[in-house]
Every structure is written in C-alpha cells, then in structure tokens.
Simulated scan of single mutants.
Amino acid sequence: MTMLDQKIYKYLRGTATSKEEKEVQDWIVSSDQNAERFFEIKAKYVASTLGDTDVDLDASYHGIFNTNNPTSRNRGRIPGTILKSAAVLAILVGLGFIFRDVIIDSRTAPIIPGDAIILQLENGNIEVISEGGATKVVDTEGIVLGAQQGSQLIYKNNGTSKKELIYNTLTVPYGKRFDLLLSDGTEVTLNSGTSLKYPVQFLKTKNRQVFLDGEAFFNVAKDSVNPFIVNTNELNVRVLGTKFNLSSYPEDQFVNTTLIEGSVSVYNERDTFDSSNAFLLEPGFKAEWNKNNKQILVEEADIAMHTDWLNGKIILRHVPFKNIVKKLERHYNVDIVNNNPELNDELFTASFDVESIDQVFKTFNVTYEMEYKINDRQIIIN
C-alpha cells in the first residue's frame, strides 16, 4: 500500500490530520483519473466494513474480476469475503453515476488558487475566502452559522441546540494571516501556513476543543464550566479563559506555548488531563515541547519574539539560519533552497516588518556573506 493510499484510508476513517485531509482533497480534484481512483478505494473501504471479519482491501478488489478464484466454485455457504467483494462491485456500479456527476462539477468549478484562504465545511464542500469579501456560512438546513466581515470570519451562537459537534476547517496559506471569532466569543488569529479545525457551535455538555496545525494567537472567552482545549496532535493546551500564542508547525521540532495573561495547562495529548501530569504556565513564560524526546521545558519567554507576527513582524534573536528558513518561507510565501550547509548553524539577530525578501537577505549578508539568487518566489543559496 502506497503512502498516498494510507492517507486516503485515514481520510475515509476520519483519522487524518487537517493537513492530510487537504492533501487528499487536492489530489482528488487535480485529475479525472485521481477522482476515479479515489472512488475505487472508497468502495473497497466501505466493503471492508461489512460483516464481522476484516478483508484484504486490495485482494478483495482484484478478486471480483478473477473468474478462476477457487472460492467461486464453492456451492455451499457463500463466504463473507465473496459477499464483500460483491458489495465492492455493487458500490462501484453505483459510484459510476456519482463519479460522472463529480467530474461534471469539478470541470465547471473554479480553480482554487494556491495562495487562497480556504474554508472546508463539515460536508466536505470547500469555499474560497476572498480577503475583504463577504461570505456566509450555512449548515445543511440553510441556517446561517457565521459570516465574513472583512479580514475576519465570525461565528455566532444562534441559540439552536445542536446534539452533535459540526466542524469547519479554516486554512491560511503562506504569506497571509486571518482572524476568526468562534461561537463562544474566543478570538483567534491564524498565522501563515496554518490550519484550524473547530466546531461551528460548542456544546454545553462538552469541553471546547479545537485542532491546530501551525501557529495561532488565542484570546479565549472565559467559561469556568467548559475548558478550552487546543489539540496539536502531540500536545494539549487547556485553559478557562486567557491570552496565549501557540506555535505547532508539523515541520518544526518544537511546539511552543507562550502565555500573555491568565494561566494555561500544558500536557501530553495521550494523557487524560490531571494537575499531576500537566505543566501550569505563568504569564511571561513559555512551555517548549520537544517532539524528539517528548519532554517539556518551561522557561521565561521573549514575548515580542513569539507574538510580533501579529503586527507583521519577524523578530530573530541569536537564531540558527536552519530555523529561520521555514519562518521566511511562510512569512513571504517563497521557496528557499540552501546549498551551503555551513550556513545552517550561523546565528542571526534581526527584526523585519516592511522589508522585501531581497532586503532581508541583504541584511543577512552583513553577518554572513552569501551568494544567492532570487527567481520570482524561489531563493537559491550557493
């Protein structure tokens, strides 16, 4: 089974991360052949869930076309695997009509730009958020759940009593930031290259939980009964009401939680929350989770360095160049190719806000002379 197939199966099971979900969706709509392949895999997956025994998905799919299959000559009780294979065929036949409809829709649907802000609804529909535009978020019953006001997407508690959580996912590309107001009044600012999965309306009987890939600043509305929990796949941050910054990009080695005011508890997402297994932060401190050794380090934080991205700034204080590359790529929406490994451990201290990427590299040249070329959005360091 290929890596792509594994992501598709995770997508179908509902266990894929928001990043993996987006990768699968982008792959599906990229070609007719990919869409057809997806429906084949989906059919096999659905069939594998029938009955009490598991079935080899690849074997069951190819088996329905194999007329020499010895089990087909068994005239006694029909084995469950054959029933499942028959189910696969039935699903594929049915999906033939669905497939044609999907292809028609995909051909007439607008192409989504790679630098667009994307809102994915619970039903899988994708909407492009135009900066400064106006978008309404509605559920399957036509009830308005939220609306865009300029650079902010606002959800309101409309008073309806939902029995189950319904999630939306907002994804912000490189080079952009966006604001989100959740239904409980919590304010979130998403940094570039960030995805946040959140309920359109929280339930009074459950904790307020969202899922973050990337970096965001949270101003959490106070609720002494229902804690607010940010899940980052490896680490949970639990609060009742406070302001903090959380950086959890998949490609970074560390997950950093920086507290501005109030208090937060940081703990391993595999653990059930308990004061004995959580680290309690005080304002002005940060908790650094090391993905390699699974350890948490709590220390005093340079608040500006972790939060000035909200003002469009990048602040570097004795930071190795290898740690700067991804930060620049996200902030300026560029691709940096470093062919000089000696540069990786060179330390830089600087602050940028209105500078172009060319001006940034000219500043680096003051500390470390380097040869580089800028071709559109690609920077090559020799």
Results as ranks from 00 to 15, higher is better:
residue 255 V to G: 06
residue 190 L to N: 13
residue 234 E to N: 15
residue 230 V to C: 07
residue 181 L to R: 00
residue 223 D to A: 05
residue 256 N to F: 02
residue 226 N to A: 10
residue 163 K to G: 04
residue 152 Q to Y: 03
residue 190 L to S: 15
residue 226 N to P: 00
residue 266 V to A: 06
residue 175 G to I: 14
residue 182 L to V: 02
residue 180 L to A: 10
residue 237 V to L: 00
residue 163 K to Q: 12
residue 155 Y to Q: 05
residue 184 D to K: 00
residue 151 S to M: 14
residue 257 T to G: 09
residue 164 E to L: 15
residue 160 T to K: 15
residue 244 F to R: 11
residue 153 L to W: 01
residue 243 K to Y: 07
residue 169 T to G: 12
residue 208 R to K: 03
residue 236 N to A: 06
residue 186 T to V: 03
residue 231 N to T: 06
residue 190 L to R: 14
residue 190 L to K: 12
residue 195 S to F: 04
residue 253 Q to C: 06
residue 273 F to M: 00
residue 235 L to I: 15
residue 176 K to M: 01
residue 248 S to M: 12
residue 235 L to T: 12
residue 207 N to K: 06
residue 181 L to P: 00
residue 255 V to L: 09
residue 202 F to S: 06
residue 254 F to N: 11
residue 262 G to W: 04
residue 208 R to N: 03
residue 219 N to F: 02
residue 229 I to D: 01
residue 183 S to I: 01
residue 253 Q to M: 03
residue 226 N to S: 05
residue 205 T to W: 07
residue 227 P to M: 04
residue 196 L to S: 00
residue 153 L to Y: 00
residue 241 G to M: 04
residue 252 D to C: 02
residue 202 F to P: 02
residue 186 T to I: 03
residue 235 L to D: 07
residue 161 S to E: 10
residue 253 Q to K: 09
residue 211 F to M: 05
residue 273 F to A: 04
residue 198 Y to Q: 08
residue 193 G to V: 15
residue 256 N to V: 13
residue 180 L to M: 10
residue 191 N to Y: 11
residue 232 T to S: 08
residue 273 F to G: 01
residue 156 K to Q: 12
residue 236 N to W: 02
residue 191 N to R: 15
residue 239 V to L: 02
